[in-house]
């Protein structure tokens, strides 16, 4: 277990350095890292500190958030097909961002887009909690999440539909594909507090999720407060996924596939899956974000498109394996 965590951490570290030294400027890794750390006020330091460093940091924040939230959501719902977007956070965050793009708020205010996305996530999760009720089980939470996701999706389409400005519509489409290109340290500072808060909340869930292996009744009798688990899960997921969507757009499949891949390696115990899945998510998004720069450097291949392209076949493979095991 500790070996797995160490290996994943080493992988994240290596990919982080790789992400920092990869770029169109074509500078050697040693030179670029020296410029990053020492700083000589030259253009290279500027490139490293203002372009590559925020991109790599955001990949770690977003990836770890999606992996952690996915593992927590699957543990809570006791379903390997659950993913963090299930409770409607990513849909409503996207709606907030789209409104910011459409109204021009994103252009007039440098932090307008992430701010509106966070506001959207907050409003969405508030509605989900109000709909699901304080005592309801996991089923009402899923149903409320589906309803809010559908509503947010419909409203997003409505904004696109009525958009008088084709450029705004274009921008919205591209933003919704999810990307880490051209992000600045500002994005890092906007996402960081919500991300850290969400991580702290989700990290406390291990014990409750372990107990839920035995079902809701047995978990309650083991002294686990299901209400608190649910509230912590929803608040934590809303914080991390809201922040991730606000700075990177919609990046699918990470929260679904990463916990699924790592589960057998941690003996399927939900509490052990949380840290492993966070590191695995960070590694996957770092790797995918390097891949989009290597595969089509000139065409701005979107990160969310790549994760879906890679994630869907992996998921199909997992389904196939599960089917064989069940037979």
């Amino acid at each position: 277990m500790t070996r797995l965590i160490a290996a994943l951490a080493a992988l994240v570290g290596a990919l982080f350095l790789g992400s920092l030294t990869l770029g169109p400027a074509g500078i050697g890794p040693g030179e670029s890292l020296r410029a990053l750390v020492l700083g000589d006020a030259g253009p290279l330091t500027l490139v490293m500190r203002e372009i590559r460093l925020p991109r790599a940091i955001l990949a770690v924040l977003v990836g770890a958030s999606l992996g952690l939230a996915g593992a927590a959501m699957q543990g809570y719902l006791r379903n390997p097909l659950a993913e963090p977007g299930l409770i409607g956070v990513s849909g409503s965050a996207a709606l907030g961002a789209v409104i910011a793009l459409q109204t021009g708020l994103a252009a007039s205010l440098w932090f307008g887009l992430p701010l509106m996305a966070l506001a959207g996530a907050l409003a969405g999760v508030g509605l989900v909690l109000a709909l699901a009720g304080p005592r309801g089980g996991s089923l009402t939470l899923i149903l409320a999440g589906i309803a809010i996701s559908a509503l947010a999706g419909a409203l997003t389409s409505l904004v696109l539909n009525l958009s008088p400005n084709p450029f705004a519509a274009n921008e919205i489409m591209f933003w919704m594909m999810g990307s880490l290109a051209d992000r600045s340290m500002t994005h890092v500072w906007i996402a960081l507090p919500f991300t850290l808060l969400g991580w702290a909340l989700l990290a406390t869930l291990g014990r409750g999720l372990d107990a839920l292996t035995l079902g809701e009744d047995a978990a309650s009798a083991l002294g686990v407060s299901l209400r608190r688990v649910r509230l912590t899960l929803v608040a934590g997921t809303a914080s991390v996924v809201g922040a991730a969507t606000a700075v990177a757009g919609a990046i699918g499949f990470v929260g679904l596939v990463v916990p699924h891949i790592l589960r057998p390696l941690v003996g399927a115990q939900p509490s052990r899956l949380l840290p492993a899945s966070a590191l695995g998510g960070a590694a996957l998004v770092l790797a995918a974000d390097m891949a989009v720069r290597l595969i089509l450097p000139a065409r701005d291949l979107k990160l969310g498109v790549l994760t879906a392209l890679v994630g869907a076949p992996i998921f199909l493979h997992l389904i196939y394996r599960t089917r064989k095991e069940m037979a």
């Binding site: 006791r78 292996t213 003996g267």
Partner: peptide, 10 residues
């Protein structure tokens, strides 16, 4: 409980 739930392959 009567329902014999084991959610994960632990």
């Amino acid at each position: 409980p009567q329902a014999r739930e084991i959610a994960w392959p632990v």
